[in-house]
Amino acid sequence: MLNRTEGIVIRTMDYGEGHKIISLFTRSMGKISVMVRGAKKVKSRYSAIAQLFTHGDFVIYKGSQMGTLNHGEPIHSYQEIREDLHKAAYAAYLVELVERMMPEAEPDLVMFEQLLAGLSAIAEGKDAMIVIHIMEMKILALSGYLPQLEQCVSCGRTSGDMVLSPSNGGILCSACKAKDHHAMPVSAKILRLLRLFQRVDLRMLGTAEVKDETKAVLKAAMRGFMDTYLDVRWKSRSFLDQMEKYKL
């Protein structure tokens, strides 16, 4: 049975001497694995469509086993991402979030649009770290672990100084912060940004600049929630850390 769908290549793996298996996140079929025969050959008509980050139109033969690519046309290759180490590193984490956390064969149009918008934002030079934090929030929400950032998770208080407590699932007020001795102090500005991450649509993301010191706090906050609730070793995130450590 032939299926035509719009999709984004979120993972690639060499198979045999000349083939590739790609993981596609598609608009109408969800996340699926597809065999691309001959994709590694220099003159293959499928070499471009089988590259990581490629957004394309795919015709897939789907039987009872893994799908096989019958035809494919790139819509956007995102060459500007692949040619830039920093953009490629952040984009790799973006697609890994989707590849590792989205269930197989369950369409999610909203997440598809957000991934596409995230790749476009990175390609356009918007702040890639902010893009991935927004997507992390969406992944946490999808997994049922969206942090409670509007009121104290213990007593419900909505005003006053707050601390961030990943282990408690959100914020604690000054009266309740003793419940978590590892809670992270956060300013009102940081809290506003984290709340914004929960609401913003990546298709509407602007070009606002965020100071490096603010980014460091946001990174620590998001790492706290991601590592507390999602037991995943992110390969691409490790590379981002190395890139930052050695100032590549």
Rank of each mutant, 00 (worst) to 15 (best):
residue 3 N to C: 06
residue 6 E to Y: 08
residue 7 G to H: 08
residue 9 V to D: 10
residue 10 I to L: 06
residue 11 R to P: 05
residue 16 G to K: 13
residue 22 I to C: 08
residue 24 L to K: 07
residue 24 L to I: 06
residue 31 K to F: 09
residue 32 I to G: 08
residue 39 A to P: 05
residue 39 A to G: 07
residue 43 K to E: 07
residue 44 S to N: 11
residue 50 A to V: 01
residue 50 A to R: 03
residue 50 A to C: 06
residue 51 Q to Y: 08
residue 52 L to R: 03
residue 54 T to I: 06
residue 55 H to R: 03
residue 56 G to R: 04
residue 57 D to S: 12
residue 59 V to I: 09
residue 63 G to D: 09
residue 65 Q to I: 01
residue 66 M to A: 01
residue 67 G to D: 06
residue 68 T to F: 12
residue 69 L to G: 07
residue 69 L to D: 07
residue 70 N to D: 13
residue 72 G to C: 04
residue 72 G to E: 00
residue 74 P to A: 13
residue 74 P to R: 10
residue 79 Q to Y: 13
residue 81 I to Y: 14
residue 83 E to N: 14
residue 86 H to Y: 12
residue 86 H to Q: 15
residue 87 K to F: 12
residue 88 A to V: 04
residue 91 A to F: 07
residue 93 Y to L: 11
residue 96 E to H: 10
residue 96 E to I: 04
residue 98 V to A: 06
residue 100 R to A: 06
residue 101 M to I: 08
residue 102 M to H: 09
residue 102 M to G: 03
residue 102 M to N: 02
residue 110 V to H: 13
residue 111 M to N: 03
residue 113 E to A: 10
residue 115 L to S: 05
residue 115 L to C: 00
residue 116 L to R: 15
residue 116 L to F: 02
residue 117 A to V: 07
residue 118 G to A: 06
residue 118 G to I: 04
residue 120 S to K: 15
residue 121 A to C: 14
residue 125 G to Y: 05
residue 127 D to K: 10
residue 130 I to N: 03
residue 133 H to F: 10
residue 135 M to C: 00
residue 135 M to R: 03
residue 135 M to D: 00
residue 136 E to C: 04
residue 137 M to P: 01
residue 138 K to Q: 14
residue 141 A to L: 01
residue 142 L to Q: 11
residue 151 Q to A: 14
residue 152 C to F: 10
residue 152 C to D: 12
residue 152 C to I: 09
residue 159 S to C: 02
residue 161 D to H: 13
residue 166 P to Y: 11
residue 175 A to L: 12
residue 182 H to E: 13
residue 184 M to C: 10
residue 192 R to P: 00
residue 192 R to C: 02
residue 193 L to C: 05
residue 194 L to S: 03
residue 196 L to K: 13
residue 197 F to H: 11
residue 198 Q to I: 02
residue 201 D to H: 07
residue 201 D to K: 09
residue 203 R to H: 04
residue 203 R to G: 13
residue 204 M to P: 00
residue 205 L to N: 00
residue 206 G to T: 02
residue 207 T to V: 06
residue 211 K to R: 09
residue 214 T to W: 02
residue 216 A to H: 07
residue 217 V to I: 12
residue 217 V to W: 02
residue 219 K to D: 12
residue 220 A to K: 11
residue 222 M to I: 09
residue 222 M to L: 03
residue 225 F to S: 02
residue 228 T to M: 10
residue 232 V to T: 12
residue 232 V to L: 11
residue 232 V to Y: 15
residue 235 K to M: 11
residue 238 S to R: 15
residue 239 F to Q: 04
residue 242 Q to I: 14
residue 243 M to V: 13
residue 243 M to K: 10
residue 244 E to M: 11
residue 248 L to Q: 14
residue 248 L to S: 11
